[in-house]
Amino acid sequence: MTIWAILWLVILIAIFIGTYLLNKHTPKPEGCEDMSECVGCNNIACSHHSAHHKEEVKNAD
């Protein structure tokens, strides 16, 4: 029984990481670069949070 659990977990994690990477490497359409209007909440998992933009700028340098 546990083999199914491990298999299922591996499948799920693979799907999640797969879609996450696919999404990350899909470029945003033009006009959407500066989404800084979303300063509403402090949810740091949101990819539009300003903390991620600062990091990208650092990586670019």
């Binding site: 799920l12 999640f16 879609t19 996450y20 696919l22 999404n23 899909t26 470029p27 945003k28 359409p29």
Partner: peptide, 13 residues
């Protein structure tokens, strides 16, 4: 989480 990523990618494209 996968669904959200997928929907976002789908919309971008």
């Amino acid at each position: 989480a996968s669904l959200v990523q997928f929907v976002e990618m789908f919309l971008k494209k």
